[in-house]
Nucleic acid binder design. Structure first.
Length: 260
DNA sequence: ATTGTGGCCTGCCCGC
DNA sequence: TGCGGGCAGGCCACAA
């Protein structure tokens, strides 16, 4: 699914859509427009204007509009971004490998004939205008030691749930979180506030290297734990049978032998 | 305030 | 061969 690694690819792709005059907007799926946004309103905000900047906070892609306003794009777990027919990533875990024009939920056409499209089979993504950026925590790719410490401190929530809470740390989804905790040797059920300073440092170190490595390899599904993220599999590190539990409402894989 | 749960969405895969 | 149930997880609404 798209986590911050994929959204960062989408952001880079979206730079190809900057400084091009917007001719028209198609939002055929009302469900896909969030917070009461209407097709008329999003047309009014975009048509005749241009995107000036492509930003990303966590899994939220932000396109700054000339003359003010911000378009926010979310991709759920199966959403793809296409610019001029080119895709930002070529593989999405848990998403269909097919591509259907009917899954185009939102299209921005430029007056040069190209377009920017969100294609989402499952409709778990969405479009919003002027999203509340303050709802999101610090981006996981650039979070500082003090910020991570503060995000975890005094919390009794399971470590994994806290890391996936987008208001605390933005950008981490199920796969990357499992991978990072597996690498850092931390049990996902540990109360978030129970980590020692050295454990927080270790977590941050693995957070950074994992995000960098997965970005370089091209997807959040390319971690070393990922191949073993199936029932009955063993830890690639030490061969112990992996635990499969539900933590924070999500399927969590972890190794009982080396994650504490 | 914080934490946990349920439901939404729909394609896909497995077993019958 | 077709069909139905379960599963995937990001995000929101809601409950305790």
């Amino acid at each position: 699914m798209p986590e911050l690694v994929e959204i960062e690819y989408y952001r880079r792709l979206a730079e190809a859509a900057l400084d091009r005059q917007i001719a028209s907007v198609a939002a055929p799926d009302e469900w896909f427009l969030k917070w009461g946004l209407t097709e008329a309103a999003v047309r009014d905000a975009l048509e005749g204007r241009r995107f000036e900047r492509a930003r990303r906070i966590g899994k939220l892609l932000l396109l700054d509009i000339s003359d003010g306003g911000v378009l926010g794009l979310r991709f759920g777990m199966a959403g793809r971004l296409l610019v001029d027919g080119r895709a930002g990533v070529d593989h999405l875990q848990y998403a269909s490998s097919r591509w259907e024009p009917a899954w185009d939920r939102f299209t921005v056409r430029f007056d040069d004939g190209g377009d920017l499209r969100v294609n989402d089979a499952r409709r778990l993504g969405g479009v919003e205008l002027d999203p509340d950026e303050a709802r999101l925590g610090f981006d996981a790719a650039t979070i500082t030691p003090a910020q991570l410490r503060a995000a975890l401190a005094h919390s009794t929530a399971p470590l994994k749930a806290r890391l996936m809470d987008q208001r605390r740390v933005a950008g981490l989804g199920n796969l990357i979180t499992d991978e990072v905790l597996w690498r850092a040797g931390l049990d996902p059920t540990r109360p978030a506030g129970s980590l020692t300073p050295s454990e927080v440092s270790r977590l941050l170190r693995h957070l950074r290297t994992t995000i960098a490595e997965l970005t370089e390899r091209g997807g959040s599904h390319l971690g070393r734990l990922q191949v073993a993220r199936v029932p009955g599999c063993r830890c690639p590190k030490d061969g112990a049978p992996l635990l499969r539990r539900t933590i924070g409402g999500r399927t969590a894989y972890s190794c009982p032998a080396h994650q504490h």
